[in-house]
Design a protein around this nucleic acid. Sequence first.
DNA 1: TTGTCGGCCGATCGCCGACAA
DNA 2: TTGTCGGCGATCGGCCGACAA
Lengths: 224, 224
Amino acid sequence: VDPQAWKACAGAAARFPAVGSRVYYFPQGHAEQASSPVDIPGVVSAGLLCRVSAVRLLADVDTDEVFARISLDHCCFRSPFISSSTVPDISLEEDGGCGGFVSFSKILTASDANNGGGFSVPKFCAESILPPLNYEKVPTVQIIHVRDLHGVAWSFRHIYRGTPRRHLLTTGWCNFVKEKKLVAGDSIVFMKNLSGQLLVGIRRTSRSCGLTEYPRYYPKEALG
Amino acid sequence: VDPQAWKACAGAAARFPAVGSRVYYFPQGHAEQASSPVDIPGVVSAGLLCRVSAVRLLADVDTDEVFARISLDHCCFRSPFISSSTVPDISLEEDGGCGGFVSFSKILTASDANNGGGFSVPKFCAESILPPLNYEKVPTVQIIHVRDLHGVAWSFRHIYRGTPRRHLLTTGWCNFVKEKKLVAGDSIVFMKNLSGQLLVGIRRTSRSCGLTEYPRYYPKEALG
DNA sequence: TTGTCGGCCGATCGCCGACAA
DNA sequence: TTGTCGGCGATCGGCCGACAA
């Protein structure tokens, strides 16, 4: 995915090593996070000096969560290594300035995540990222087109209404919440890239990982 | 699952070998149906004489489709073997009479499978399997409780109405259709076992295997 | 500035008898 | 006997401004 979008979604604390830098690989730390068991005979807790041969910035195809795949080289050891998005204490790769790429993240409130309602867009986010509205027309409304990190297109009705006036996303929003399985506490990241295209990313609260809601089997009594 | 329920769902043509009988195992036929590749070095197309050591009657946990797991013994070869529900030309195991176990199957019509409507219960099915209604009360209605082959309980509102009168399942039915992903052309099997308990099974049309419906991402234009 | 609430209006769900195959 | 249809009432989704934090 786009590196700037990746960083906006991963958050300011996200770090990953530069390609070519030397890092220590600790199987212990890997095993604690990996879903498949890690067992490399002869490698003990001391750590293994490696060279970073590649870093790929990716987004989970199901959850949209961003992560980095960091490939390591060793004399007799080569393995893909999936890190979490926050890997502190490793050398930082920085680019020079944001260069017109802007992003804004908001933690979803209960009202945002209720499928009954829309999404309250903070004023700063609307004015800095969303296309400008024609405030002379009433209702003051437009359809915005956004792509997620996988390139899938979404549209939202963006309206400026209420007393006092505020920015809201209505039609299209609840469908997005449903599809992405968002809950209150998750964050949404709105971004505008250099071409002016809108992107949307997701940062989930740890509690919402892998949660699944099963429908009910037992209808209520319904005697006529 | 209950052997009689299994047979009612598999259909009259279903056959499986008796335990202890001798059968030939053809890797070719197995490989054509298996989802995982079958590769047994040294076994060629000639077939392998085996003894049936066990037959288990099962229902797929996702689709409710019934199948038989037939275990085979050979001098130096033992493997679980999953057959389809129809395995002709193998010895037939028969039990003596139905002994009070009754079943009725119906192919779902468009009206049955439309989530808008209910299910038209054929008169013979209602009178031979469903609990008797009190026809003196109006509306003539009851809630029936049914278990699927996995033991999951479902309830349906069973009403006798319309001109001319007919049996219908209404409340609860459309939820069942949704959960089981039934489409027109699939069959539903209603059964009553020796204890008078109601069971429900499913036989799917081949076309509906593994079909998945994805929701739409793009809401229609909705300018106010 | 923005989170939550109740009102309200329109769309949809799903129960109904009519009618014909 | 039963499949399909249009009608229609109840429910729900979701858009709205009011109001207060």
